[in-house]
Design a protein around this nucleic acid. Structure first.
Length: 425
DNA sequence: GCTAAATTCAGAC
DNA sequence: CTAACGGTCTGAATTTAGC
């Protein structure tokens, strides 16, 4: 097996720079929803030691001092850039897995050797056609490809492409001994600490750890990681994305809200969003979970956090039915007198549509009409922009007190004609 | 004491 | 001037519930 991992460098930052090249070389970050945390950092900001996920207000002083530019995140833009990126990748091989918004695994088994040049060709084409810089790691398993990608990113001498098969076993061992075990895919902060305590400090240490002992002391998951480091594939490339088993939509509010009615508005909007995703993958949900909570970062305020799952009599993809169930649950868990910071819903027990047990008493005509209504609604929203039509209860966007804060969002150049018009004017 | 279901944990990005 | 901290998803492990 030969697997390549192609990964966009500093993805969101790079996307913004495509449309604003003057940002090139400047320290910049992209912030999460509500301008809360740093979710992407340029190389210049990483060099300043700003960690991933850092709350923006905590680095405000640093930002002022070094002139860090902060952008609100624009997920519509990133999704569009991601699609372009993936379609360029698809010109190289049909057999690839979209792993996340900014990375994909390519199965290059059976390709002629000398993959470094081939990978450089991929980099060049993505840069030319989409404008994004990528790094590429190549190895005999997914875990090794990931690791190689890390090397390609961190070590300039590799020039953005690291094919581990170009190293002798001796050179590979030497390299692995220089990399901390925490860089391995699947080893997070906690596992790193436990492994370190056992004297497993580097990738090399983990590679040579006794896999039976690892399984006993940790889990099958980590055992598989050890196998993969040794070139034994345990993870397969999933060219076809499996349907989601749960679909979640939740948001923190731009400001705390207190009334049931405002929570109802937000929950209604989240259900509409999730139900649309549900329909787009051709599924129905058997239950819906609702949750609300106050702000845990304000311990001086009275705290409340509650959720409940509302089972549905029969599985459905109908926004209105799902909304009714969600609002029923919301009423049950709502307690007055709290400053709510966040609400969300989750669709659960998801199964393919059309395989539900037949309900002999169902009103076929009403169901048919309802199905058509959902189809028309999705079509209108696609044609005229999202949120053109939807359940009335979610309120008019401009009047929602709870909407997200996005202080410095740039126009959605590629995805919204209205925003493009503003730029023209 | 078993199995199934629910919940928690850990990780990725 | 101050206060300000993301969102989705998976799969395994662990706990709990029901018998």
């Amino acid at each position: 097996m030969r697997i390549a991992l192609v990964d966009v460098n500093n993805c969101y930052v790079s996307c913004e720079r495509v449309f604003n090249p003057s940002l090139e070389g400047k320290p910049m970050v992209v912030l999460s929803n509500n301008d809360g945390c740093v979710v992407a950092r340029s190389a210049e900001v990483k060099a300043l030691g700003v960690p991933m996920g850092e709350p923006w207000f905590k680095i405000r002083h640093l930002a002022r001092k070094h002139g860090i530019v902060a952008y609100s995140s624009n997920y519509a833009l990133y999704a569009d850039m991601s699609n372009r990126f993936m379609s360029v990748i698809s010109t190289f091989t049909p057999n690839f897995e979209i792993y996340s918004i900014d990375e994909c695994f390519l199965d290059l088994s059976g390709f002629p050797s000398g993959l470094t040049d081939y990978a450089q060709g991929i980099r060049k084409k993505v840069r030319q056609w989409v404008g994004l810089p990528v790094s590429i790691g190549i190895g005999s398993t997914k875990t090794l490809a990931k690791l190689a990608n890390h090397v390609a990113k961190k070590r300039p001498e590799w020039n953005g492409v690291c094919d581990l098969s170009t190293l002798s076993p001796f050179e590979q061992e030497k390299l692995f001994a220089e990399i901390g075990v925490g860089e391995v895919w699947g080893v997070g902060r906690r596992l790193r600490e436990s492994l370190n305590a056992l004297g497993i400090l580097t990738v090399k240490d983990l590679k040579h750890a006794d896999s039976g002992r690892i399984r006993k002391r940790f889990s099958v998951v980590l055992e598989r990681t050890v196998q993969e480091l040794n070139g034994v594939p345990c993870l397969v490339l999933e060219a076809i994305a499996p349907n989601k088993q749960q679909i979640m939509s939740s948001r923190s509010f731009g400001q705390p809200i207190h009334s049931l009615q405002q929570l109802e508005e937000s929950v209604t909007l989240y259900v509409a969003r999730a139900a649309k995703k549900l329909r787009s993958q051709g599924s129905v949900a058997g239950g819906i979970q609702v949750h609300i909570r106050t702000n845990p970062f304000k311990p001086e305020d009275p705290q409340y956090s509650q959720g409940m799952i509302v089972p549905l009599a029969e599985s459905t993809d109908d926004t209105l039915k799902l909304t009714r169930s969600a609002l029923f649950g919301l009423k049950r868990i709502f307690r007055p007198g709290y400053a709510y910071a966040k609400a969300g819903i989750m669709l659960v027990e998801i199964s393919p549509k059309g395989q539900e047990p037949v309900d002999l008493f169902a009103d076929v005509e009403t169901m048919q009409r309802r199905t058509n209504l959902m189809g028309v609604m999705d079509a209108i929203n696609h044609r005229y922009g999202k949120n053109t039509v939807g359940p009335g209860i979610c309120g008019i966007a401009e009047r929602r007190a709870w909407s997200m804060k996005r202080g410095n969002k740039m126009p959605a150049y590629t995805t919204d004609w209205n925003e493009l018009a503003i730029v023209r004017a």
